[in-house]
Simulated scan of single mutants.
Amino acid sequence: MTLTELYAKGEGRSINKATKRVFDVLATFIGATAPLGASELSRQLGLSRNMVHRALVTLAEEGYLLKSDPGGRYVLSYRLVELQNTAVAPPDLREIARPCLAHLSEATGETAQLCVRSGDVQTIIDGIEGGGPVVVRVKLGRATPLHASNASRAILAACTNAEIEDYLKRNAPLTRYTPATLTEPDALWQEIGAIRKAGYALSFGDYSPGTIGVAIALVDFDARPFGAIVVGGPASRLTDAWIQEHLETIRSAVANLNSITSLYQAP
């Protein structure tokens, strides 16, 4: 699901398809670590190479892309900064994240939650509960240290090594909440390495026994982790097969959300 499909769901009949293609192409550049060309964008977006080429030429002529090399690859230009009105405060994070939460809860049938970091803890500020008689309840305002729970560990793993070392020193000895809580620095560092490699954190009863979930960090304009999106439910229902079935959906939705949050600086 592309950025415009996710946040314009249900309004397809009012969308100009040519304009939508241009925005889809532009959105693909957000967060890209290397120049992009028509061929690779065509594969990523499922559009013909000619359609992508026309969108690239249009964006370049309007000054939003710059040609990076003679081969026809492009990068974002600084003209995008003109689109941000510095006189207007950044939108509320809950408003930005709400469509993502709704999409994930509907797609997976489980609870989707938004957490934000405040110092050495992360706090649940919004969520949509899943269906069924047994679900993970959204506990607004619950604060959890950064070494316990999948959301916390997703945020911690996205921090720099120096920031993690500082957290470990200031909070030693780490508090144990369940027998599975990682309180030894070596074990936590090993888990951080696994999260960084996978790109997400899994829960294993280290804070809330009996629940399983997938958490992915949210980053701001400076690539600082300031929160996380978590999708979870009862361990009896969320098997390894469930995780594999829904992982790409979760990854894609959070990547789309990060393409928006990375335009702003977290407080």
Results as ranks from 00 to 15, higher is better:
A172T: 14
R237K: 11
A194F: 07
A180K: 11
S236V: 07
L156M: 15
I192V: 14
I212Q: 02
L168D: 04
F226R: 08
W242G: 02
N171Y: 01
I192D: 03
P225Y: 07
R170H: 11
L238F: 05
I229N: 10
L238R: 00
A201H: 11
R237N: 02
V230C: 09
D166T: 12
T181R: 06
T181N: 03
D220S: 03
I164M: 09
D166Y: 04
I243Q: 08
T211D: 04
R224F: 13
G210P: 03
V230W: 04
P225E: 00
L188D: 05
G227Q: 06
N161T: 14
P179Y: 05
S203P: 12
S208Q: 15
S203G: 14
T160I: 10
D186R: 14
G233P: 04
A198Q: 11
I229Q: 10
D206N: 13
A215S: 15
W242A: 03
S236P: 06
A158I: 07
G199D: 13
G213S: 01
E184C: 00
W189L: 11
G193M: 10
A235H: 00
R196C: 13
D166S: 11
I192R: 13
A180L: 13
P209W: 00
V231T: 02
G233T: 02
D222P: 05
I192T: 10
P209C: 04
A172E: 12
I195N: 06
A215M: 05
E163V: 09
L182D: 05
L218T: 12
P173V: 09
A215K: 05
A235I: 06
G227L: 07
Y200P: 01
W242R: 11
L174D: 04
